[in-house]
């Protein structure tokens, strides 16, 4: 079973992930339209300038941030950023993963792998963030009002690889069982990522960089 999960099943799930992501990106460009250039000249004050950090630009940046989600929900913004960066960084730079890559394909990331203490710290940070999201979903009325069983399942599924990985590395419970659960949950995440709620990981970047809006992170050239 272990060989099947880490072999054909993992490769199938990885293929679904890559093809699914390509499908979603192509679909995004088919669903959106390129913005036609306006015939009338835009008044200079409305032309979005390329942002440059300077002493003069700081007050306007502060004012912009104050009314954005950063200013309105600073804690949630911070937790969200830390969580999302950590869940990408930790698996990539985890020594155990890199040793596996080295053994299997001779790819050696080991010099830049995290020492165990940092990996443990990041796992703790990720689990703390997940608990924050969970409690927010349970106790904040507006979030609870739109929460479904599926949202709780997604939180549980996200937490599973980190919990099982941590427990397996530190020798708690049965190593083989934990690794099997670890692999199955990661495979499930790979399948779910392009097609379920996790799809926001793709559309966040597409929306914020390609769709022209007040809050876009670039000038944006497309519209829904």
């Amino acid at each position: 079973m272990y060989e099947f999960i880490r072999g054909p099943m993992a490769w199938t799930c990885f293929s679904i992930l890559i093809l699914g992501m390509i499908f979603q990106v192509v679909r995004f460009f088919l669903l959106t339209k390129k913005i036609q250039p306006v015939r009338l000249a835009t008044p200079p004050r409305y032309i979005k300038k390329k942002f440059e950090l300077s002493r003069e630009s700081l007050p306007s940046l502060a004012a912009k941030l104050r009314v954005s989600v950063v200013g309105v929900n600073p804690l949630m913004t911070l937790v969200t950023i830390v969580f999302h960066v950590s869940i990408i960084v930790l698996p990539l730079f985890l020594m155990e993963h890199n040793i596996l890559l080295d053994v299997l394909w001779g790819i050696n990331f080991c010099p830049c792998s995290f020492p165990e203490s940092i990996a443990d710290f990041l796992t703790g940070v990720i689990l703390a963030c997940i608990l924050f999201f969970l409690f927010r979903r349970i106790f904040v009325s507006r979030v609870r009002s739109i929460s479904t069983f599926y949202d709780y399942f997604i939180i549980l599924l996200t937490a599973t690889p980190f919990v099982t990985g941590f427990l397996a590395i530190h020798g708690f419970f049965d190593y083989r069982t934990l690794i099997i659960i670890h692999l199955i949950s990661v495979n499930l995440i790979m399948v779910f990522l392009p097609f379920a709620k996790f799809v926001h990981s793709i559309f966040f970047f597409l929306n914020r960089f390609f769709i022209r809006s007040e809050y876009s992170l670039s000038t944006g050239s497309r519209n829904w």
Partner: peptide, 16 residues
Amino acid sequence: KTKMKLFLKVCAHCGL
């Protein structure tokens, strides 16, 4: 359908 389904799926129910 396509856009509507996508928007409902992308919504992470974050309440932000």
